[in-house]
């Protein structure tokens, strides 16, 4: 971790703090005079041989995502202890996530902070901060999704004790984020009217994992020939238990029901003060 601003860079993933203005140079401790020999220390026991062992099968049956799942559970406990409602918001790039979340943060009636994931730039975090919403940006470099450990490190840069709602805006992608639990209370998937009614059928893994589906940009539904009834039927066929809210962040259409939903979930978590 950078000692100047607390920002973190690991494997191309960087957490950009708001005052991130200094340069991170390449630190290299390899002195050219470094010529001494690194000897090995194990004893040369005549019984100790390195011949290959017999071929054999090791039965493991381990979940590859076990480590992330464990960290996500740790996050869930941590967020619960702070009475936080946590949203993991996932959608295609350009589906209106940031606009919808700005409106939500400003009007939901809960004190709100945002963790934003993008491949590059902190433009989205700046947009939130310009509206007075505390936010922290994770730039993932080439990584196509957020993972549980990144979210915790980033979230701790926000004053979580002052928040009631923590929104995690995931990297714009309808495939990869589906597999990674972040420790959220609710997984929210967006489907914008410009994407077509059959998106849930094309990306079933993600839509099946949603607790809430928001149909966004409803104000332009007519102009783009979006058939709301068909879209609703497709979401319900893929995910019969998801709550669905058709909304327009621009006009405010349907947003009150979405806010009520968040208020209800927050009230169920703990002290609603």
């Amino acid at each position: 971790m950078c000692g100047t601003c607390g920002c973190v860079s690991e494997n191309g993933v960087t957490i950009l703090t708001p005052d991130h203005s200094h340069h991170h140079g390449h630190r290299d401790d390899h002195n050219p005079d470094h010529t001494h020999h690194h000897g090995h220390t194990h004893s040369h026991d005549p019984q100790h041989t390195h011949t290959p062992t017999l071929p054999r099968t090791l039965d493991l049956t381990q979940s590859v995502l076990a480590k992330n799942d464990r960290l996500a559970e740790r996050n869930r406990g941590y967020f619960l202890a702070k009475n936080l409602l946590v949203l993991n918001v996932i959608s295609s790039p350009g589906s209106g996530k940031t606009t919808l979340l700005q409106a939500t943060a400003q009007n939901v009636g809960l004190s709100c902070g945002v963790v934003v994931g993008d491949l590059e730039t902190d433009n989205d975090a700046q947009r939130f901060r310009a509206g007075g919403i505390p936010s922290i940006q994770i730039t993932t470099g080439t990584l196509c999704h957020l993972e549980a450990d990144m979210v915790l490190t980033a979230a701790q840069h926000l004053n979580l004790d002052a928040l009631q709602l923590l929104i995690i805006e995931n990297v714009g992608n309808l495939v990869c984020p589906a597999a990674y639990d972040l420790g959220e209370t609710l997984r929210v998937v967006l489907l914008s009217t410009t994407e077509g009614e059959d998106k849930p059928l094309k990306y079933p893994t993600l839509f099946k994992s949603a607790d809430v589906v928001l149909l966004t940009k409803l104000d332009i539904a007519e102009a783009v020939g979006f058939d709301e009834a068909t879209a609703l039927a497709n979401v319900q066929a893929i995910n019969p238990t998801a709550s669905i809210f058709p909304v327009s962040a621009k006009t405010g259409l349907g947003m009150a029901a979405w806010y009520d939903c968040l208020q209800d979930y927050r009230a169920g978590i703990g002290d609603p003060s």
Binding site: P55, R56, L58, L60, T61, Q62, S63
Partner: peptide, 8 residues
């Protein structure tokens, strides 16, 4: 899942 490994 990683089910099994064959090693020697």
């Amino acid at each position: 899942q990683l089910k099994s490994l064959e090693v020697s």
